[in-house]
Design a protein around this nucleic acid. Structure first.
Lengths: 165, 165
DNA sequence: CGAGAATACTTGACTAATCAAGCAATAACC
DNA sequence: GGTTATTGCTTGATTAGTCAAGTATTCTCG
């Protein structure tokens, strides 16, 4: 059974078959995520001039836009990131240097630093919204809504397993 | 419908619902891949001493083990990587420095550099095999083989879309 | 066979990620 | 109220990733 090589096998020019579906799923996940990262990275990384963002920086701005005027402390941002960011301080340093985020020490708890998105940050996000929203729907027509929903559920279960590891 | 927040929404502490299933799938993919990367990265990154690997370095070694004694030219390795690696030369530099890979100029075409895995490289992979194979099956019991297969297919379709972008 | 294009890397300069250690502010406990 | 622990970052050192430009070798075609 399954004598012909899978699509992924061809993509990475692998002659031997995968050891298991589990392995193929893991590698497929890596490769798909990598391509997606590059796709979205290209969008946020071409603001021209000095307003190029990395995906992580973009994620911070999105989180801060969602948080509104009261802002969020640094580590709360880290906790909300899609991808872990141990270097959150310097990540935000760079956003502050570009004038996209403002920081100030929190008065109630002086250990904390409250971060807020600036007007320039909001403007930049607004400029990117269209392209990003369109890209979020890049799979429409190729993968059905039902399949996407199943995908989301499977990914949820996968992360539950990984959380404990 | 869907009044309660999704698992992913809770994970990233997002109050607003996602704009679409497409968006949720993309973010879920990023987050799952990030967790998987860290999980596998921990395995290959703890060889102790000076034999710690990154996932990318590990991938190169796996490719070279598969290629056998005749080895592979540098850019052919790059083409076979699961995740793109523009810095392939220096990636292999580091493997060579650790004595895990040997390189030599190809005689038929002197532009090429043939890379081969060393005995030490093979030994290192052998030491990691068990843990990696077990991790490839980390989802067994949580995600059915049928679901994994569907996942693989959906990911294949996603990458087909992204290839042209 | 000789000029120009293409291939296969390599290098330099810069940016970003990672881990461990450190420091100041607050909380918890006796 | 004084010590200890915890929290919330910050910094330093190291490693890795990215893009553009450069070099050597081979290929193509008149």
């Amino acid at each position: 059974m399954a004598a012909h090589p899978s699509q992924l096998q061809q993509e990475i020019r692998q002659t031997r078959p995968f050891r298991s579906v589990g392995q193929e799923a893991v590698l497929g996940l890596f490769k798909t995520a990598d391509m997606l990262r590059r796709h979205f990275g290209k969008i946020v990384g071409q603001g021209g001039e000095a307003v190029e963002l990395t995906l992580q920086q973009y994620n911070v701005l999105r989180i801060l836009r969602g948080a509104g005027a009261e802002g969020l402390p640094t580590l709360e941002i880290a906790a909300r990131m899609v991808e872990q960011a141990p270097g959150i301080t310097r990540l935000i340093d760079r956003l502050e240097a570009k004038g996209l985020v403002a920081r100030e020490r929190c008065l109630e708890d002086r250990r904390r630093v409250t971060c807020r998105i600036s007007r320039a940050g909001l403007a930049l996000l607004a400029r990117l919204d269209d392209q990003i929203n369109r890209s979020d729907e890049v799979f429409d027509g190729v993968v059905s809504a039902a399949d996407l929903k199943r995908l989301v559920e499977v990914l949820d279960r996968m992360r539950s397993v990984l959380e404990t590891k």
